[in-house]
Design a protein around this nucleic acid. Sequence first.
DNA 1: GTCTATATGCTGATAGAC
DNA 2: GTCTATCAGCATATAGAC
Lengths: 178, 178
Amino acid sequence: MSRAKSDTKARAQAVARELFLRQGVRRTSLQDIADRLGITKPALYYHFSSREELVRSIVQPLIEDGDAFIAEAEARADDDPRVLLEGYFDFQFAHREVVALMIRELVALADLGLVAKVLDWRTRLAVLLVGEDPPLADATRATVALGGLSDCVMVFADQPVEAVRAAAVAAALDALGR
Amino acid sequence: MSRAKSDTKARAQAVARELFLRQGVRRTSLQDIADRLGITKPALYYHFSSREELVRSIVQPLIEDGDAFIAEAEARADDDPRVLLEGYFDFQFAHREVVALMIRELVALADLGLVAKVLDWRTRLAVLLVGEDPPLADATRATVALGGLSDCVMVFADQPVEAVRAAAVAAALDALGR
DNA sequence: GTCTATATGCTGATAGAC
DNA sequence: GTCTATCAGCATATAGAC
């Protein structure tokens, strides 16, 4: 009875996830998804009451798991940072497709070669920091240092520049293990 | 003669930057920009041959400065990581508005509360890592650790999970100064 | 569950007057 | 430099038959 339920719904979500990831959420129309499924747009509306509901259905699991992870971590606020970081990593890894979807949403600017540029810069900066073809350990150090530095510029935009710069660079250097 | 040139063009770019930042590039139409300027759409086409050219004109300075920065850094490949990191920070800070524009492009998903969620999680994780209202030095350490960890999940998606996790967590812990 | 047909609105873009 | 008028295209969404 409950077997072989609405197969189309699941297929639609899978196709949507793929298209969202490849070409961005906003520039993926219901038409694109319907075409890929070999059905028509109105058929999609049988499974999802709106476009937004379709998007939400894909993102929902990440949100729920995230809330659960944080709640658990806060409940046992005693454990060491390592456990916390590992858990956060695992959580993100489990949802890496949707996380990637978030990041690739920058695809809107990728047309301008911006994202490619920034990734290229980071790659070359990483070479300067840890050399060509570094062992994974050093490569991740460079990524943490550069990625973390970027985040600080945005996160602490309201703080005094010099103080942020000094603190951020210090943390990045620690991440590099220098 | 060259004074008081095309004021409208500069105003259009300023308005566009603001709207792009507030509501994302894709969902900002020429109509929105024209309305804000108190002119009509066709008037915009006098200053920009296409929508894409308008977007590009805003992003171009970042790209040019970035290329220049990398070229210089590579030319003097001798200096220590600290100088490099500081330079990279300064470069990003000078263009923080456009950098923010890139990041806020995630606004497409912000409607779903996703970005707010992730920022909220990070804030709360930072509390667990470095406590409530930490000094700026610790706050940045947490940001580098969490931001860098996130980046690693994506950047090394093709590498063995366990190895990436170990390396990324190690670098994050160093960034934390623990 | 899926279809055809259609409503309605907004998009980027152009033609041509002033 | 800015306007009015207009285009074709595509979007989300709905009505109703099968």
